[in-house]
Design a protein around this nucleic acid. Structure first.
Lengths: 120, 120
DNA sequence: GATAAACATGTCGAAATCGCCATGACCATC
DNA sequence: GATGGTCATGGCGATTTCGACATGTTTATC
């Protein structure tokens, strides 16, 4: 099953905390310094009592080196911009023929995984 | 050419207009309807007199099927780079092990393609 | 228990966006 | 000239985030 039906603002606070703690291992104070935002704003964001503005969202994503799409819950991919994702970069180099091959291979992996997983 | 050193808010209005006109060929009214935002807000965004809030940004990206990172000018990639690409999207569904295998395979294809291309 | 770090929570005025609505410009086609 | 579609611009009150600051709570270490 896919990720959930939480509200965008709820996803955001979880993503922000996940990126800060698990991914970057920073304190709120450290992220505040890195992003140029006041520490209280970070706390409010993670508490869900505020949603970041245009500029704040940008600063957060830059400081954490994550995509804004990840913070907003629009993609599962935690790390780096899609462009910065080495997988995606490799993907960009593929021609149509190679893309087809890669797609087939991934389909094969997925089916194999389904069989191994059995019924749940 | 690369994008330059304009302010984030300036980049945004250009990206929004580019996505709406060139990419989706919608009128402001059409985008307004699609996103659920008032037409005047779209106009303000493209004029640069307003910057979108958390929710508005999300609605815009969804309606246009582009990444928020693109709208914010954090990536040069025109289209919804990651999640709009079916191949990349499929890869998100794989578990870590299969994801690595798929990555290896694509890296192999990419390198092979580089060799065939010869010089840089 | 004392101290400190990390965080939660809330208050405050200032500034910004919010949706809505009106007006005017521009440019087609009639 | 008249009509209609597209967009720019700005005013209005309402809502929200802004930065700054104060006050607790929890947890760990001494």
């Amino acid at each position: 099953m896919t990720i959930g039906h939480e509200k965008p603002s709820d996803i955001f606070k979880e993503r922000l905390r996940a990126a800060r703690e698990s991914l970057r291992q920073m304190s709120q104070a450290a992220l505040a310094k890195e992003s140029g935002l006041p520490p209280s704003s970070i706390a409010h964001f993670e508490a869900g009592t505020r949603k970041p503005s245009f500029d704040s969202l940008r600063k957060l994503a830059n400081a954490l080196s994550v995509t804004t799409d990840f913070l907003l819950g629009r993609t599962h991919n935690p790390e780096g911009a899609a462009e910065a994702d080495p997988l995606y970069r490799d993907m960009q180099k593929l021609n149509d023929e190679n893309r087809r091959q890669a797609a087939d291979f991934m389909r094969f992996l997925a089916e194999k995984h389904d069989k191994e997983a059995g019924k749940k």
